[in-house]
Write a protein that binds this DNA or RNA. Structure first.
Lengths: 254, 254
DNA sequence: AATTTAATTTGGTATATACCAAGCGGTATG
DNA sequence: CATACCGCTTGGTATATACCAAATTAAATT
């Protein structure tokens, strides 16, 4: 077999790496390997399917992209656990969302500082309706579920609405703190969800590999008086979380 | 330079492919290459950064994962266009969502058949509340915007609610057809959004490469009487679309 | 039996190379 | 000017190989 010719093998012109991926996926979906179970190594798959190790890697990479498996550096490749649901239709915070699914939430403050609005990105400043010299709290946290890193949050709050926010305990729900300490009750969220990828810095802060699939959520929160109280850019693990939206038709529609 | 040793080069132990990706990303973000503009080829990048072509590919793959570039087979790699917003908070159909953004929507029926519910997946049958022998319409369509493929939809409708649905013109809004012809008015949606990957079959139907980032939306639609009228599994291009959710706090929250 | 050390396995990074098919641009011809 | 053909470029698929560091397992020692 000459190099590069295998693309014509496998019946129907299916590249070798896709054929191998399909067969491994079938094993997983058949329950032969359960959640958390070990998938054969790259070298094992190469021998088993008569392909090169690099081709076996491409097969595993494809399964990873599909969310069927996750790779742990130097340990092996394992079948992914079921995903955690995050409800987009609710203003409930991340912590309460996890608790509802019996998952123990955690949060760790990575950075907490107060800066003039000129130092945050223009969209953030505009969304919060703050002028360039106005103070803004910047809070960066990692979020975990049952000790496993799930998200990296970067939130911005206008300091004039919650002056000493960063002096409080911020390892729980920030929305609770805003509510109880400042009378700021999140009442309306706008959230944009898109596919993206971690850069090295974010991967390090979150404590996961840089090539984990990521969903970015850009969020603006308003209180009942329609004051903008938070602008956030969050990075969620697409391999562990699924977003759910429940929508009702209002009388304006149709 | 020995093979495999470059991982220690580049200052601070940054792998070569990540360094190159960072520099190309900087060029894109600086506006040196605008939307639709051509990114240097793998071979050009290899020469420019003194790396192997395979390493240059890894760099481009990383940029692709971040949604900054898109690759067109044998043509080159280009900076991605701005993304189209899809509103999760509305029951408006895909077509009207595109029209609101000045984009010309299109739809093409790929498959249309009526089968007993035993032949669709169990979750679909359960969501629609149909028994195994009950007839279900299966409609598979590709959706385009300005002629460009954007989504592959697979929808299921209980035939008893819309008996001759598949005989109608289904190249426009199906929700309009349900409304006007059967008095079925979609009033409530539940949509789950997650990261996934196209298989070869879906890639072919949609007419895009199999490794385009994909967001899968699993949807159930109910009418005003709370009858389930649609179960759908849609595949949207994550490189071209962004999902937006607007959320109001109801009086129950608290 | 528990702990420590050594050996093996594993994914990660990287190079070099080969071949293919599709896309695009340039050139020649009518 | 329009069309057809050709050559070059490009990403896609694949092999072989090297080396590294982290994780796991096996073996040795206490």
């Amino acid at each position: 077999m000459e190099r590069g010719m295998a693309a014509t093998e496998g019946g129907g012109g299916v590249p070798a790496y896709r054929g191998a991926a399909r067969e491994v996926a079938a094993r997983i979906l058949a329950g032969d390997i359960g959640p958390g179970g070990r998938v054969p190594s790259e070298r094992e798959l190469a021998v088993e399917y008569g392909i090169s190790r690099m081709t076996a890697r491409s097969a595993i990479r494809l399964l990873e992209k599909r969310g069927l498996v996750e790779r742990r550096g130097r340990s092996g490749t394992f079948v992914s656990a079921p995903k955690i649901e995050i409800d987009l239709s609710s203003v409930a915070g991340f912590s309460s969302r996890l608790l509802r699914q019996g998952i123990s939430p955690g949060a760790e403050v990575v950075e907490a500082r107060t800066v003039p609005a000129s130092e945050i990105d223009a969209r953030g400043a505009e969304s919060l309706g703050v002028s360039a010299d106005e103070a803004v709290h910047v809070l960066v946290r990692t979020r975990t579920g049952n000790g496993e890193p799930l998200a990296l949050e970067e939130s911005h709050f206008p300091a004039r609405l919650c002056p000493d926010l960063l002096e409080r305990d911020l390892t729980g729900s920030v929305y609770d703190v805003l509510r109880e300490s400042y009378g700021l009750d999140p009442a309306h969220l706008r959230q944009e969800v898109e596919v993206t990828q971690l850069d090295t810095d974010a991967a390090e802060k979150l404590g996961v590999r840089a090539d984990v699939p990521i969903l970015r959520v850009v969020r603006v929160a308003w209180d009942a008086e329609r004051r903008p109280i938070e602008f956030a850019r969050d990075l969620y693990r697409g391999d562990r979380l699924i977003f759910v939206s429940d929508t009702e038709q209002t009388s304006e529609e149709g």
